Amino acid sequence: MRSHPITADLLRGLAELEPTDRGWLPHRLPARARAQCGDPQLAAVEAQPSGVRLAFRTRATAVELDLLRTRTILVGVPDRPDGMVDLLVDGRLTHQVTTTGGDVVRVDPATGLTESQRGSVGTVRFTGLSAQDKDIEIWLPHYERTEIAGLRTDDAITAAPPSGQQVWLHYGSSISQGSNAASPSTTWPAQAAALGGVELINLGLAGSAMLDPFVARTMRDTPADVLSIKTGINLVNGDVMRVRAFGPAVHGFLDTVRDGHPDSPFLVVGPLYCPIHENTPGPGAFDVAALATGQIRFIATGDPADTTRGRLTLSVIRDQLAEIMAARAVDDPHLYYLDGRDLYGPDDSAEHPLPDNLHPDASTHQIIGERFARLAFSEDAPLGR
């Protein structure tokens, strides 16, 4: 087997590649952005490489990848499935291997106490590939911090040439990152990108889609052909602002992105349907009764009456977004709005309920991805124009 250096030209969907004492860590936010927020949640999720993949051409029949994952385990509830690594050959998913080994962070959801345990590098192997020239994509786990410690093949590789597809830059919450999706290439944004024939850069940041200015500047400075943001749920379940702050925050975010992409098609997506927060403000919290039975569910702890004092709910946010987008569309003909309930609405909630009251399951990721591709990337749709 031949060893290959880990270089940025072999990777797509990331902002930076950081050397560590055990490998190379892909970041989805650049260092300047990371330095402007000390939130451990953001630091954890931006280093979970949702949408990040190695891409190269080769005749190799065997590929080995050494990965150092970091698993977050919630004490008292069933472990999340091991992370998955997807291998695509010429754009088609052909192999899937789970991650092993790695560091572990144990979190007690009842107390917030954490404990870290250092682990070892694990290896994922893909064998039985054809000996013909082919484009390989290896999608890294979407919810495990992942350092790349080594890459080996049984033949030469070259960085994949540009696909020629448009680059789609998307920002959103844990649903956009892929929470509860079966694998990294089957999150709803990954499926939408495949159906829409675009290259994905995924800034889905679980629990951290707060309209932060440093994310807006990251989007401003990232080369992209079409852009989208999905906003709402983290502002509510994080209880981070009121109506007075929301409107200016949306305007400021969009203004900053537009500084770098003044005429690019830009789609703003309102929140998906989520019964617990439709008319009840945050903050969101773990359902303690469910935790006692070994299950993860979320609840809304705010008072619906507080909406009269400016507290945000998903319904309030949709009303605000509709007004903001209608006003901005007058001067920005390439800015579009999509009600998130067109991707997942009340009827879907009845047929495909959110298992933990907050995140869709794997089959619903597929539904959302197919709908987004149709509503955003078809010929006459906002991002397909």
Rank of each mutant, 00 (worst) to 15 (best):
R69H: 08
H95A: 12
G91K: 03
L67N: 04
V97I: 13
G83M: 05
I73V: 15
V97A: 13
L74I: 03
G76P: 09
I73H: 13
G91V: 03
T70F: 00
L93D: 03
D90L: 03
L93K: 03
D66C: 07
D82G: 10
H95V: 09
H95G: 01
T100N: 10
G76H: 10
D66M: 05
T99I: 13
T99M: 00
L74S: 10
P78A: 13
T99K: 02
V85A: 00
V97N: 01
P81M: 03
R92I: 13
R71A: 14
M84A: 15
D90E: 13
G102R: 09
H95N: 12
T94H: 02
T94G: 00
I73W: 06
D66S: 15
M84L: 11
G83N: 07
R80A: 15
R69A: 12
R71L: 06
T94L: 07
T99F: 01
G76N: 09
L74H: 12
R92V: 15
D79P: 01
V75I: 14
L65Q: 08
G101S: 04
D90W: 07
L87A: 06
M84D: 06
L74A: 10
L88C: 15
G91A: 08
D90T: 10
G83A: 10
D103F: 05
R92G: 01
D66K: 11
T94K: 03
T98G: 09
V77D: 07
G102W: 11
D103T: 10
L87H: 06
R69G: 14
